[in-house]
Amino acid sequence: MSKMHIKLTVNGKPVELLAEPRELLIHVLREELSITGPHIGCETTHCGACTIDMDGRSIKSCTVFAAQANGANVTTIEGLGTPDGLHVLQTMFKEHHGLQCGFCTPGMITRAYRLLQENPDPTEEEVRFGMSGNLCRCTGYQNIVKAILAAAAELNAVKEAAQ
């Protein structure tokens, strides 16, 4: 099968690669680029383990062709923070025990990152609704919700202090 030439930005770095038209973005990220933070849980867009941020939207990368990401700006869990400079969501998930097996966590945090851009001061109900595309089998969500609300509060406090 002939391959397509694809250019995109992943976690701030320009990337060029060849992929078959049918290749899914999640496979390209994980297998070609060794970005294994986003996971595969269902391959039918239900579980959200593969959630990435693409051009300012939460995207389930298991149902997007790599070719559709041509020219896109992609951020994965690997691009949200560094070991010395964690994103506040990463800190709060640990602080509030918002994860157990960790399989849903990269997608969960990446989705929460976008949710807080869309709605910086959400209610618990808005967090629950906004996160409902991401499944977790371990935590019962209670501590995930707590972690996201705590992260929102922290981000808002930092923002206020800066003003």
Binding site: I35, T36, G37, P38, H39, T76, I77, E78, G81, P83, L86, Q90, F93, K94, L99, G102, F103, T105, P106, I109
Partner: peptide, 12 residues
């Protein structure tokens, strides 16, 4: 465990 899982560095 959380440091690696929250940074996408789990190894499944």
């Amino acid at each position: 465990e959380d440091a690696r899982f929250t940074q996408g560095k789990g190894n499944y």
